[in-house]
Design a protein around this nucleic acid. Structure first.
Lengths: 108, 108
DNA sequence: ACAATGCGTAAGTAACTGCTAACCGTAAGT
DNA sequence: ACTTACGGTTAGCAGTTACTTACGCATTGT
């Protein structure tokens, strides 16, 4: 296969609160692993493991900078989730409209 | 408090593949619990438990119809996820742009 | 009344997940 | 070469979760 990455599920990746906190901090500003761990109530290896999951979901990307690695957001994972949600957003509104119409006009 | 619901995390709700399959089937057409279970490789009580989670995340809503309950999509949960993603979508593109600019113009 | 249908809930279990501690590799600075 | 800083990986454990089976409750039809 062409893609060597594991291609993880982005929804599962963002399900964990700690992982979402990591993601949000990276969204504010690209950061190193130690910087992220310093602002979170978990150890540095824990952050490292979370970053691995986020990276496999293509939600973040990393770049070597000396001995440090700077993590930034990756548009691919975020975009994939947006596409999925947009598809079902229309369905949600349609279902809601059908429901409301039925409430207004109850068949005898 | 005004809201008696547990207010679950929609991302965590959609993290499970089976639960997302339930959600997608409801998106295609509002269905009863038995109908959903018939098309899935899990038992009916399992579907019922998944529906409870989806409902707490405000991703689906149910309506009694005789002895059956018809589940439809709920725009609230889907909308909440869209808002969250849109917020970080801009950040993701900005981070990507910064990264690309740095690649083009490497400081000596 | 009685039987049947449709769902939700409780209990129990196997599998997964997120965490820490300890270790190892790599890239600068002296 | 030695040291320091930074980060990924492993092993092991505690907590969570998704599933099935069994049960109970409500609504409809006869």
């Amino acid at each position: 296969m062409a893609n060597a990455l594991a291609a993880r599920d982005p929804f599962a990746a963002l399900a964990d609160p700690t992982r979402r906190a990591v993601f949000e901090r990276i969204a504010r500003a690209p950061s190193s692993v130690a910087d992220l761990a310093a602002g979170l109530p978990v150890s540095r290896p824990a952050v490292s493991q979370h970053l691995k999951v986020l990276k496999e979901a293509q939600l973040v990307a990393d770049e070597a900078q000396g001995t440090r690695r700077i993590y930034r957001l990756d548009p691919r994972g975020v975009g994939a989730m947006r596409d999925w949600l947009d598809t079902h957003w229309d369905a949600a509104l349609a279902a809601f409209k059908t429901f409301m119409d039925k409430q207004e006009d109850p068949r005898p």
